[in-house]
Amino acid sequence: MRKILVIGGACQGKTKWVQDNFKEYRQVSFSEVLRENLQGKVLSAIYLDSFHSTTREWIKAGEDHKKNLEYLRKNLSWVIVANEIGNGVVPMDPFERKWREETGRMLCELAKDADEVYRIFCGIPLQLKGENKV
């Protein structure tokens, strides 16, 4: 069981690629993960999609996103999927800027933990980290 980060632009087939290749991972929401973690369980084989939407909710709600990320990272094995959102013109709106910047930094942290990192482009994976070719 491995830790896998999958990133890419919007609508590049990330979800489909993950669902085709990581069937043994169970799709969860972050609130489920947090609930079980807070009960003392450490999870394995979980699959969290649209991580960038989750980070947006965290930042919007003023939650301690660093703490949330710590919970997520500590689980044994995961697939986390996120859109790359930092590759556009820097927005005027401070919240939008913060979301992009903080999400990028969180993805850097997850990439450090991950055994494999993939960037999906037109449905095709480019492996950025790890040896285990899917």
Binding site: E84, I85, G86, N87, R100, E101, E102, T103, G104, C108
Partner: peptide, 8 residues
């Protein structure tokens, strides 16, 4: 060296 926001 290039990259987006928060890319490292």
């Amino acid at each position: 060296i290039s990259g987006g926001s928060g890319s490292g």
